[in-house]
Amino acid sequence: MGAYLLLSTLLLGSIVFAVTIGPANISAAEVWTSILHHLGIGESSLSVLRDGIVWQLRLPRVLTAAAVGAGLALAGVVMQAVTRNPLADPYLLGLSSGASLGAVAVLLIGVSLLLPVAAFIGAMIALALTLLLAGAFGRITPGRTVLAGIAVSALAGAVTSLVIFWTVTGDSYREILGWLLGSLASARWSSVWIGLAAIAVAGIPVMLTGRLLDSFAFGDTSAATLGVNVQAARWSLLTASAVLTAAMVSVSGSIGFVGLILPHAVRLLTGPRHRLLLPLSALLGASFLIWADTAARSMFDPRELPVGIVTAIFGAPVFALLLAARRTET
């Protein structure tokens, strides 16, 4: 229970503090009177433009980061448990490559769809292809699914590269590069709603499946003897995490590291029990991505970095420290 309290406080504190940081020089008090004003409490003294910085840029961006971080961490936990593969990540089933292809189609070929919609459609097509391929020539097993995902990823990645190679003119590659590396720069209120909706529809149900995921750890046969309908459970879990991932990719591109490493980091702290692992990964993932993005948008002020670079640069050493600490304990 202590861990819940600690990580929830960390998340809340991260949101409150991160919105006050940015290239524009606006005091913390001004930021919060502006936000409270929009929530119907009190009056704000900020000009329209500075108020826009807080309410249209910073707050939606911080909240999107929280939703994406939580969603990716959750999807990572599920993928790792269901495929019994510690190297599994949310993008395993071709999701990010499919989403990238959808985004590239909008940005470069000019398909007239909203970018998040196109990315979502791309991700779902890739997932469907993966599952079709995995089931095409026999029984679907975790191993076959992962292999099918790799094949679909490779195909979608190649088509994406082909499109970029043929259509990029002048310096338009810069925009697509930012998206491929993962970036929260496009976060607006619409992104917040997409992120929160995915958490509500897929994230929260997944968080309640701790016992089920524990049973997967012992293998399909043991899970079956525990009274689990293995196939049905596996597909609902995979679909839930695919929806989660596709939604997150659609608002932020493919941000690496969070979904792969964060579940392991939390596991090092709490042990392998999923009832704890799921919600704690979500909470820590949310805080982690808020801070990574805050660094991305303010460290090199007034320049911005794609957040995917920051998650790996900071995440990898932190994870190494965790590993080292764990080794000395045992």
Partner: peptide
């Protein structure tokens, strides 16, 4: 203040500066 020819910037900095005019570069791709 950025010591480079062209650079990535942030909308927040643009809004904070609220420039009097904006020079738009016109190209076939953007």
């Amino acid at each position: 203040s950025i010591d480079d020819t062209w650079a990535s910037y942030s909308w927040e900095s643009v809004i904070a500066a609220d420039p009097d005019v904006i020079v738009l570069v016109d190209s076939s791709w953007n």
